[in-house]
Design a protein around this nucleic acid. Structure first.
Length: 274
DNA sequence: AGTACAGCCTGCCTGC
DNA sequence: TGCAGGCAGGCTGTAC
């Protein structure tokens, strides 16, 4: 699923390829993919030029000329693909934004959880961004601030890492990897972690996210993440524990266990993570 | 206020 | 064989 490294990889691709291009037309086969409605999105962006592609957490913020702003969230299976007019249709293609010089930006999404949303105005952009917590790889966060944030809740640390209001950009893959790397049991209550453990975990989060970026993201299953050129990531080759239940722990050889933490699949080495 | 969880949705897998 | 039911999961809304 697209998390910080995956969304950032796509963001950079889009920035490189699409800034300056003009939107010629918008079509959609899934009404909910374009919000509030395909008609309104189309009317707002037709004739406008892409100005910038920014990101906060897993949310892409697309600025166009005329003060128009789109928010794009890929959720589990969303893809943004840069194609040429006439290229074969993509699997689960839900919307097509035709661009100048025969290019297209396609939105594909198997599960239909993702969306491209037109913001009503700058206030709505600000309101949305204010609900997204600080990012691990930015200056907004460091080990000490991370400790302060997680001190405020007694929920399991794994759940807290996935709470985008507290820390943004981390999803299930990188949460599993970071907890393993730091040697922390996902069920540990967040406010029971010591300063030392918190600092350790924060470092591990930074490490796995950087590795993910370096590898241009993780494509664990076929229907999942692709970059803007439709290519798979490389991080799935390097994953330590995610989706590896029953296989030996890379540190100690113990069998990796699978459990559910807050409705989400969780992988743990009970010898290394305490 | 803080926490828990159903529901959104499609495709794949299992079991009858 | 064919089909119903369960499962996967990020995030929001609602209930406790």
């Amino acid at each position: 699923m697209p998390e910080l490294p995956e969304v950032e990889t796509i963001r950079k691709d889009l920035e490189r390829e699409l800034v300056g291009r003009t939107v010629l037309d918008v079509t959609s086969s899934a009404p909910k993919a374009l919000q509030p409605s395909p008609k309104e999105v189309s009317a707002a962006i037709k004739g406008k030029k892409f100005r910038s592609f920014k990101r906060k957490g897993k949310l892409l913020i697309v600025r166009l000329s005329g003060g128009v702003t789109l928010g794009i969230h890929l959720r589990l299976t969303g893809r943004l693909l840069i194609r040429k007019e006439g290229d074969p249709p993509d699997e689960w293609q839900r919307a097509t934004i035709k661009l100048s010089e025969g290019k297209e930006l396609r939105f594909s999404d198997l599960r239909l959880f993702g969306y491209i949303k037109l913001f009503k105005g700058e206030e709505e952009v600000e309101e949305t961004l204010s609900k997204i917590g600080p990012e691990p790889l930015s200056k907004e966060l460091n080990g000490e601030k991370f400790y302060e944030i997680i001190q405020k809740t007694s929920r399991p640390i794994k759940i807290v890492l996935l709470d985008q209001k507290l820390i943004s950009g981390v999803g299930n893959i990188y949460a599993n990897e970071a907890l393993f790397e730091a040697g922390i049991d996902p069920l540990t209550k967040a406010n029971q972690l010591t300063r030392d453990q918190a600092a350790h975990l924060y470092k591990a989060i930074e490490l796995v996210l950087r590795e993910g970026l370096e590898a241009r993201g993780a494509t664990i299953a076929d229907e999942m993440y692709r970059d803007a050129y439709g290519r798979r990531g490389g991080y799935e080759e390097k994953v330590r524990i995610y989706q590896r239940a029953g296989k030996p722990c890379p540190k100690c050889g113990e069998k990796i266990k699978y459990l559910k933490v807050g409705q989400r699949g969780t992988f743990v080495c009970s010898r290394c993570q305490r």
